Simulated scan of single mutants.
Amino acid sequence: MSHPRVDVVLLTMNDRPEQEKTAQATLLAQRGVDLRICVVGNGCVPDIVPSDAHTVVLEENVGIPGGRNAGARALTESGRPGDYLFFLDNDATFPTDDVLARLLAEADHHPEAAYVQPRLTGPDDATTPRRWVPRLRAGDPSRPGVITTMTEGIVLVRRDAFDAVGGWEASLFAYEGLDLAYRCWSAGWSGWYAADLRMHHPVTSPTRHAQFHRLAARNRIAVAYRNLPASLIPAYLTTWTAITLARSARHGGIRDSLQGMREGWALRHAQARRPMSWRTAWRLTTAGRPPVISTPAHPRSIRSPAGGTP
Protein backbone atom coordinates (compact mmCIF):
# COMPACT_ATOMS: atom_id res chain seq x y z
CA MET A 1 0.00 0.00 0.00
CA SER A 2 1.45 3.37 -0.99
CA HIS A 3 1.54 6.22 1.51
CA PRO A 4 1.68 9.97 0.99
CA ARG A 5 5.24 11.25 0.68
CA VAL A 6 6.64 13.96 2.93
CA ASP A 7 10.03 15.64 2.64
CA VAL A 8 11.38 16.55 6.08
CA VAL A 9 14.02 19.23 6.64
CA LEU A 10 15.86 19.33 9.95
CA LEU A 11 18.59 21.85 10.79
CA THR A 12 21.41 21.20 13.22
CA MET A 13 24.50 22.80 14.69
CA ASN A 14 25.35 19.67 16.69
CA ASP A 15 24.54 21.64 19.82
CA ARG A 16 21.88 19.42 21.43
CA PRO A 17 22.74 15.77 20.58
CA GLU A 18 20.44 14.04 23.06
CA GLN A 19 17.42 16.11 22.10
CA GLU A 20 18.20 15.60 18.44
CA LYS A 21 18.40 11.83 18.85
CA THR A 22 14.98 11.87 20.46
CA ALA A 23 13.53 14.15 17.79
CA GLN A 24 14.79 11.91 15.01
CA ALA A 25 13.60 8.74 16.74
CA THR A 26 10.04 10.06 17.02
CA LEU A 27 10.21 11.23 13.41
CA LEU A 28 11.31 7.83 12.15
CA ALA A 29 8.52 6.19 14.17
CA GLN A 30 5.80 8.00 12.16
CA ARG A 31 3.56 5.54 10.36
CA GLY A 32 1.26 5.93 7.39
CA VAL A 33 3.68 8.21 5.52
CA ASP A 34 6.73 7.77 3.31
CA LEU A 35 9.52 10.00 4.58
CA ARG A 36 12.52 11.51 2.88
CA ILE A 37 14.72 13.33 5.36
CA CYS A 38 17.40 15.95 4.85
CA VAL A 39 19.62 16.94 7.77
CA VAL A 40 21.26 20.31 7.17
CA GLY A 41 24.46 21.15 9.01
CA ASN A 42 24.26 24.92 9.47
CA GLY A 43 27.98 25.65 9.62
CA CYS A 44 28.91 22.08 10.56
CA VAL A 45 28.95 18.45 9.43
CA PRO A 46 25.91 16.81 11.06
CA ASP A 47 26.80 14.25 13.70
CA ILE A 48 23.40 12.54 13.84
CA VAL A 49 21.92 11.45 10.51
CA PRO A 50 19.29 8.72 10.03
CA SER A 51 20.05 5.88 7.66
CA ASP A 52 19.28 6.79 4.03
CA ALA A 53 18.79 10.46 4.89
CA HIS A 54 20.21 13.20 2.72
CA THR A 55 22.82 15.52 4.18
CA VAL A 56 23.66 19.12 3.35
CA VAL A 57 26.80 20.68 4.81
CA LEU A 58 26.89 24.47 4.84
CA GLU A 59 30.32 25.96 5.47
CA GLU A 60 28.90 28.70 7.66
CA ASN A 61 25.71 29.41 9.56
CA VAL A 62 23.50 31.02 6.91
CA GLY A 63 20.56 31.39 9.28
CA ILE A 64 17.42 29.37 9.74
CA PRO A 65 15.54 30.23 6.51
CA GLY A 66 18.64 29.85 4.34
CA GLY A 67 19.40 26.47 5.89
CA ARG A 68 15.85 25.28 5.42
CA ASN A 69 15.87 26.37 1.80
CA ALA A 70 19.08 24.40 1.26
CA GLY A 71 17.44 21.26 2.64
CA ALA A 72 14.28 21.69 0.57
CA ARG A 73 16.38 22.30 -2.55
CA ALA A 74 18.50 19.19 -1.93
CA LEU A 75 15.39 17.03 -1.65
CA THR A 76 14.03 18.50 -4.89
CA GLU A 77 17.29 17.89 -6.73
CA SER A 78 17.43 14.29 -5.52
CA GLY A 79 14.34 13.53 -7.62
CA ARG A 80 10.64 12.88 -7.07
CA PRO A 81 10.04 15.50 -4.38
CA GLY A 82 7.15 14.88 -2.03
CA ASP A 83 3.92 16.83 -2.21
CA TYR A 84 4.58 18.25 1.25
CA LEU A 85 7.51 19.68 3.17
CA PHE A 86 7.71 19.35 6.93
CA PHE A 87 10.11 21.66 8.75
CA LEU A 88 11.17 20.24 12.11
CA ASP A 89 13.21 21.84 14.88
CA ASN A 90 15.86 19.47 16.17
CA ASP A 91 14.51 19.56 19.73
CA ALA A 92 10.85 18.99 18.87
CA THR A 93 9.22 15.58 19.24
CA PHE A 94 6.14 13.72 18.02
CA PRO A 95 4.13 12.50 21.02
CA THR A 96 2.45 9.73 18.99
CA ASP A 97 3.30 7.83 15.82
CA ASP A 98 0.37 9.17 13.77
CA VAL A 99 0.92 12.94 13.97
CA LEU A 100 2.27 13.40 10.45
CA ALA A 101 -0.41 11.20 8.90
CA ARG A 102 -3.10 13.18 10.71
CA LEU A 103 -1.52 16.48 9.62
CA LEU A 104 -1.71 15.28 6.02
CA ALA A 105 -5.35 14.39 6.54
CA GLU A 106 -5.94 17.94 7.82
CA ALA A 107 -4.22 19.31 4.71
CA ASP A 108 -6.47 17.18 2.50
CA HIS A 109 -9.50 18.46 4.40
CA HIS A 110 -8.36 22.08 3.92
CA PRO A 111 -7.05 22.25 0.34
CA GLU A 112 -7.09 26.05 0.50
CA ALA A 113 -4.37 26.05 3.19
CA ALA A 114 -0.74 26.36 2.06
CA TYR A 115 0.44 25.34 5.52
CA VAL A 116 -0.94 23.38 8.44
CA GLN A 117 0.21 24.12 11.96
CA PRO A 118 -0.12 21.64 14.84
CA ARG A 119 -0.61 22.80 18.41
CA LEU A 120 2.76 23.20 20.11
CA THR A 121 2.98 22.20 23.77
CA GLY A 122 5.63 21.60 26.36
CA PRO A 123 6.72 18.03 27.10
CA ASP A 124 3.77 17.71 29.49
CA ASP A 125 1.41 17.63 26.46
CA ALA A 126 -0.70 20.40 27.98
CA THR A 127 1.22 23.65 28.45
CA THR A 128 0.79 25.98 25.49
CA PRO A 129 2.07 29.51 26.11
CA ARG A 130 0.03 32.20 24.38
CA ARG A 131 3.04 33.02 22.21
CA TRP A 132 2.82 29.57 20.61
CA VAL A 133 -0.76 30.02 19.42
CA PRO A 134 -0.53 31.33 15.82
CA ARG A 135 -3.44 33.77 16.01
CA LEU A 136 -4.34 36.93 17.88
CA ARG A 137 -7.07 35.44 20.08
CA ALA A 138 -4.75 33.05 21.88
CA GLY A 139 -6.67 32.45 25.08
CA ASP A 140 -7.91 29.01 24.00
CA PRO A 141 -5.07 27.07 22.30
CA SER A 142 -7.38 24.11 21.69
CA ARG A 143 -9.55 26.02 19.20
CA PRO A 144 -8.69 25.21 15.55
CA GLY A 145 -9.17 27.62 12.69
CA VAL A 146 -7.75 29.72 9.90
CA ILE A 147 -4.44 31.43 10.74
CA THR A 148 -2.49 34.21 9.05
CA THR A 149 0.95 33.54 10.55
CA MET A 150 2.87 30.42 11.61
CA THR A 151 5.21 28.92 14.18
CA GLU A 152 7.78 28.22 11.54
CA GLY A 153 9.91 25.60 13.32
CA ILE A 154 7.21 22.92 13.22
CA VAL A 155 4.97 23.29 10.20
CA LEU A 156 3.68 21.31 7.21
CA VAL A 157 3.80 23.23 3.91
CA ARG A 158 2.51 22.22 0.50
CA ARG A 159 5.43 21.85 -1.86
CA ASP A 160 3.73 23.61 -4.77
CA ALA A 161 2.85 26.62 -2.59
CA PHE A 162 6.36 26.76 -1.11
CA ASP A 163 7.98 26.67 -4.55
CA ALA A 164 5.51 29.13 -6.07
CA VAL A 165 6.27 31.85 -3.49
CA GLY A 166 10.02 31.26 -3.50
CA GLY A 167 10.50 29.50 -0.17
CA TRP A 168 11.79 31.16 2.98
CA GLU A 169 13.36 34.62 2.76
CA ALA A 170 17.01 33.87 3.55
CA SER A 171 18.01 37.50 4.16
CA LEU A 172 15.90 37.57 7.34
CA PHE A 173 18.32 35.05 8.96
CA ALA A 174 15.67 34.12 11.56
CA TYR A 175 12.05 34.86 12.61
CA GLU A 176 10.85 34.34 9.07
CA GLY A 177 7.38 32.80 9.49
CA LEU A 178 5.25 35.91 9.04
CA ASP A 179 6.93 36.72 5.74
CA LEU A 180 6.24 33.28 4.26
CA ALA A 181 2.68 33.35 5.58
CA TYR A 182 2.01 36.74 3.97
CA ARG A 183 3.39 35.53 0.63
CA CYS A 184 1.25 32.40 0.75
CA TRP A 185 -1.83 34.51 1.43
CA SER A 186 -0.86 36.87 -1.40
CA ALA A 187 -0.73 33.89 -3.73
CA GLY A 188 -4.33 32.99 -2.83
CA TRP A 189 -3.68 30.41 -0.12
CA SER A 190 -4.45 30.51 3.60
CA GLY A 191 -3.20 28.67 6.70
CA TRP A 192 -4.83 26.22 9.08
CA TYR A 193 -4.26 25.58 12.79
CA ALA A 194 -4.90 21.93 13.62
CA ALA A 195 -5.28 22.45 17.36
CA ASP A 196 -6.12 18.85 18.19
CA LEU A 197 -2.75 17.63 16.88
CA ARG A 198 0.08 18.16 19.33
CA MET A 199 3.83 18.45 18.96
CA HIS A 200 6.17 18.75 21.94
CA HIS A 201 8.86 21.37 22.42
CA PRO A 202 10.92 22.54 25.40
CA VAL A 203 9.57 25.74 26.91
CA THR A 204 12.60 28.03 26.86
CA SER A 205 13.41 31.71 26.44
CA PRO A 206 15.29 33.11 23.45
CA THR A 207 16.42 36.23 25.29
CA ARG A 208 19.64 34.43 26.20
CA HIS A 209 20.57 34.89 22.53
CA ALA A 210 22.01 38.34 21.96
CA GLN A 211 20.49 38.70 18.48
CA PHE A 212 16.88 38.14 19.46
CA HIS A 213 15.67 41.69 20.04
CA ARG A 214 17.72 43.18 17.21
CA LEU A 215 16.72 40.67 14.53
CA ALA A 216 13.07 40.56 15.58
CA ALA A 217 12.87 44.37 15.30
CA ARG A 218 14.83 44.59 12.07
CA ASN A 219 12.79 41.87 10.40
CA ARG A 220 9.40 43.38 11.26
CA ILE A 221 10.34 46.46 9.25
CA ALA A 222 11.71 44.31 6.44
CA VAL A 223 8.54 42.18 6.32
CA ALA A 224 6.34 45.27 6.22
CA TYR A 225 8.26 46.79 3.32
CA ARG A 226 8.38 43.49 1.48
CA ASN A 227 4.69 42.65 1.75
CA LEU A 228 2.35 45.50 2.61
CA PRO A 229 0.71 48.09 0.38
CA ALA A 230 2.55 51.40 0.81
CA SER A 231 -0.38 53.13 2.53
CA LEU A 232 -0.57 50.42 5.23
CA ILE A 233 3.10 50.47 6.18
CA PRO A 234 2.95 53.55 8.47
CA ALA A 235 -0.01 52.19 10.45
CA TYR A 236 1.58 48.74 10.77
CA LEU A 237 4.94 50.10 11.94
CA THR A 238 3.38 52.63 14.31
CA THR A 239 1.36 49.92 16.04
CA TRP A 240 4.25 47.50 16.13
CA THR A 241 6.77 50.07 17.40
CA ALA A 242 4.52 51.19 20.24
CA ILE A 243 3.92 47.64 21.45
CA THR A 244 7.57 46.65 21.03
CA LEU A 245 8.85 49.61 23.05
CA ALA A 246 6.28 49.03 25.79
CA ARG A 247 7.23 45.37 26.09
CA SER A 248 10.95 46.14 25.93
CA ALA A 249 10.57 48.65 28.74
CA ARG A 250 8.99 45.94 30.91
CA HIS A 251 11.07 42.91 29.88
CA GLY A 252 14.36 44.44 28.72
CA GLY A 253 16.09 44.58 25.36
CA ILE A 254 15.09 48.12 24.45
CA ARG A 255 18.60 49.06 23.26
CA ASP A 256 18.85 46.05 20.94
CA SER A 257 15.30 46.64 19.71
CA LEU A 258 16.16 50.23 18.83
CA GLN A 259 19.29 49.06 17.02
CA GLY A 260 17.23 46.59 15.02
CA MET A 261 14.73 49.29 14.14
CA ARG A 262 17.53 51.53 12.89
CA GLU A 263 18.92 48.68 10.76
CA GLY A 264 15.51 47.80 9.38
CA TRP A 265 14.76 51.41 8.52
CA ALA A 266 18.16 51.93 6.87
CA LEU A 267 17.76 48.77 4.77
CA ARG A 268 14.07 49.05 3.99
CA HIS A 269 14.47 50.10 0.36
CA ALA A 270 16.77 47.14 -0.29
CA GLN A 271 13.80 44.81 0.20
CA ALA A 272 12.24 43.18 -2.84
CA ARG A 273 8.76 44.73 -2.83
CA ARG A 274 5.91 42.34 -3.57
CA PRO A 275 3.03 44.22 -1.95
CA MET A 276 -0.10 42.21 -1.32
CA SER A 277 -3.26 43.22 -3.10
CA TRP A 278 -6.09 44.98 -1.32
CA ARG A 279 -8.08 41.79 -1.79
CA THR A 280 -5.43 39.91 0.21
CA ALA A 281 -5.48 42.63 2.87
CA TRP A 282 -9.24 42.20 3.11
CA ARG A 283 -8.92 38.40 3.33
CA LEU A 284 -6.44 38.80 6.20
CA THR A 285 -8.85 41.19 7.89
CA THR A 286 -11.82 38.83 7.62
CA ALA A 287 -9.58 36.02 8.92
CA GLY A 288 -9.11 38.06 12.11
CA ARG A 289 -5.76 39.78 11.56
CA PRO A 290 -5.87 43.07 9.64
CA PRO A 291 -2.37 43.78 8.25
CA VAL A 292 -2.09 46.91 10.39
CA ILE A 293 -2.13 44.86 13.60
CA SER A 294 1.22 43.46 14.55
CA THR A 295 1.88 41.46 17.67
CA PRO A 296 5.63 41.70 18.19
CA ALA A 297 7.65 38.73 19.21
CA HIS A 298 7.43 38.36 22.95
CA PRO A 299 10.80 38.06 24.73
CA ARG A 300 10.00 34.42 25.40
CA SER A 301 8.54 33.44 22.09
CA ILE A 302 11.03 32.82 19.29
CA ARG A 303 13.71 30.35 18.40
CA SER A 304 17.42 30.91 18.32
CA PRO A 305 18.81 32.13 15.00
CA ALA A 306 21.49 29.47 15.30
CA GLY A 307 19.53 26.73 13.60
CA GLY A 308 16.97 25.42 16.07
CA THR A 309 14.97 26.40 19.09
CA PRO A 310 16.66 27.61 22.25
Rank of each mutant, 00 (worst) to 15 (best):
H3Q: 12
D7L: 00
L11M: 12
D15A: 15
D15I: 08
G43T: 00
D47A: 14
I48G: 01
V56G: 10
E59Y: 02
N61I: 03
G63T: 08
G63E: 01
I64K: 15
A74I: 04
E77I: 00
R80G: 10
A92M: 10
L103Y: 00
H109Y: 03
P111M: 07
E112V: 08
Y115T: 04
Y115H: 14
V116R: 02
L120C: 11
L120F: 12
D124S: 12
R130T: 11
P144K: 10
E152P: 14
R159A: 01
G167D: 04
C184S: 11
C184D: 05
S186D: 07
W189F: 15
L197R: 09
H200P: 00
V203S: 06
H209Y: 12
A216H: 13
N219H: 13
I221L: 08
A222I: 01
Y225I: 05
R226A: 13
N227H: 09
L232Y: 14
P234I: 03
T241H: 14
A242H: 14
I243H: 14
T244W: 09
R255H: 10
D256L: 08
S257Q: 09
M261P: 01
A266D: 09
R268D: 03
M276K: 07
W278P: 00
P291W: 10
S294F: 05
P296E: 01
A297Y: 11
A297L: 08
P305N: 09
